[in-house]
Design a binder for these strands. Structure first.
Lengths: 325, 325
DNA sequence: GTGAAAGCGCTAACAA
DNA sequence: TTGTTAGCGCTTTCAC
């Protein structure tokens, strides 16, 4: 690796001038071109560690997500990446597995790497981000709330749960079960609440016994669905509060020889890579990519120096039958 | 952020001693504890940029994949991450979108960030990695071959294509189509070659007209399947050379009211999040996670100083009906 | 517009 | 075992 000094020597200028050329500071045209020529000849790439050490900042954004194998989060990541890219930032994707320790480790790394900011889909428990915020590094929460006073981008989870349930009621289903996520996650509570409120308002008796909690993963959804099917009075429809549990529920139904829409299925989220025929399933689509874009925009504002009070943006879900694709 | 100097002052030792404590070099027990106490009190975290600038190396591995939304690659990423984590390395995931420019940019970043090494699922065209290898930074290719003399981890693509085709023949299908990937990717050629060789050996007439090329994405698979279905003499089965095109093909079949296994479908790769009943589809499972683990292992060997000639590891695919899950 | 020089925080000789 | 010191490659005053 060549350094700024070698380029300077070759170009017949001082190191400072080379630096200026690479950072867009005013330099006379002749020197610019001789520096560029020298740099090209030496395959010079500025050393980012040195630059960061000196400037205490970088064009790197950390994105912490709980499950890289969940298409919802990869779509979100795409959104973040697209927006960040436009602004000249690169994103570093970190998979926390919903483990607070991993989350903490990555937050530490973001801090000690002098990253420009962090977008965080928080693990179940609230992490400590004070070492970042103390240094003026912005953090934006996405998809899940933190107890912290920071910008956040959420989905209207209550409405999503309500729509899913209402769609099944409208289709004539009555005993509508709900497979919800872990008890300690607020967004899950909200989606489950949408179901509960709707069912209560509808006055369906005994619906409370049709609630199950699982872990947001395929296996959890399948197990919960199997439990529900084994009930003395099984449901005739189910709402799942995320995409993967929807997949699990459908797998359980398929194994039991039950086919939607005979048995009603509504999923909060989009069924990933589904090969089911159109119109069989109700999806309440979450704007995953848009969540990412919005979070990135908020973060970029902060990086640019915006100091207004913390904002919360709530995006709407979109009710959709599975369309032919 | 506190520095090593402040910790040293508070602990009553020299900066070098603080550094030694944090890097596991021999220091007397009393000093170790006073340094640790001081560090804790100041919330000291070593500055990674400074460390990297000094040592010219880091515990960061870049993983470049062409499509973060393809579950095959996220599974691969999990494998890399798990193995790297064990060894104390963090991975930085970069999405190249199969665009050579993005790949180049990320390779440059990996270089100028002094990353310990790179695992690369190469975009279609061969990138230039000489600036990395010149500095002794190891690069390992995974899933796709490069023309370069570096370690690589591949799947036995030819066999995978052959198995998929044979399974359909064994199930009684005769006019077996093939939806293959882009023409310029070697692994695709290999998988397609497995199909072609098998069909030729079997002596089925006119099978060459049942070959289509698509872009490895869902939409491409769907379009190709629709084309095949519109043929005067449509096929009675199809092999797709990756997972997403398999999804697309199944979507097209579902839309046309055709159901496997009446129409034979064999997929090279695993159908992600499938809710189809067991036994309907043939999958030739690719060891995605294992590819990642192996690539990470090879890379870690190199990082540790291994200088043997470039190795190529070929992993076997696994023939499977969709099992009940 | 340009150069000289200091210093970001850390580690690794070298000395003691 | 410990401290002193130089320097990794860059940016940024401060002079000119």
């Amino acid at each position: 690796m060549s350094t700024i000094y070698e380029v300077a020597t070759l170009a017949g200028v001082s190191p400072a001038t080379v630096s200026r050329v690479f950072n867009g500071h005013p330099v006379s045209p002749e020197k610019v071109s001789s520096v560029r020529a020298a740099a090209a000849q030496l395959h010079f790439t500025p050393n980012r560690s040195a630059k960061r050490l000196r400037t205490q900042s970088s064009e790197l954004i950390a994105l912490l997500i709980p499950d890289i194998e969940n298409p919802f989060f990869t779509a979100l990541a795409r959104g973040v990446e697209d927006r960040a890219q436009e602004a000249g930032f690169s994103i570093v994707l970190c998979n926390t597995d919903d483990e607070p320790e991993k989350e903490t480790r990555y937050l530490d790394i973001a801090n000690s790497e002098d990253m420009a900011g962090v977008i965080l889909a928080p693990a179940a428990e609230d992490g400590d981000i004070s070492h970042l915020t103390d240094r003026g590094r912005p953090v934006v929460a996405v998809d899940r709330n933190t107890g912290l006073d920071i910008d956040s981008v959420m989905v209207d989870n209550r409405a999503a749960g309500t729509w899913a349930t209402t769609a099944l009621l409208d289709a004539g289903h009555r005993r509508i079960a709900c497979i919800a996520g872990p008890l300690d996650l607020e967004d899950t509570e909200e989606r489950g609440l949408g179901w509960r409120t709707t069912m209560r308002r509808r006055g369906e008796p005994g619906f409370e016994s049709l609630l199950r909690h699982a872990d947001y993963r395929v296996e959890g959804g399948r197990a919960a669905m199997n439990e529900l099917l084994a009930l003395r009075e099984p449901p005739d429809a189910v709402v799942t509060t995320n995409n993967l549990m929807g997949v699990g529920a459908l797998q359980a139904l398929a194994a039991a020889g039950i086919t939607p829409p005979e048995f009603g299925v509504a999923v909060v989220g989009e069924l990933p890579f589904s090969t089911l025929p159109p119109e069989a399933i109700t999806e309440v689509r979450l704007p995953a990519r848009h969540l990412g874009i919005t979070a990135a925009s908020l973060l970029l504002d902060r990086i640019a120096g915006d100091t207004q009070p913390a904002r919360t943006v709530v995006l709407r879900a979109e009710l959709a039958r599975r369309a032919a694709r």
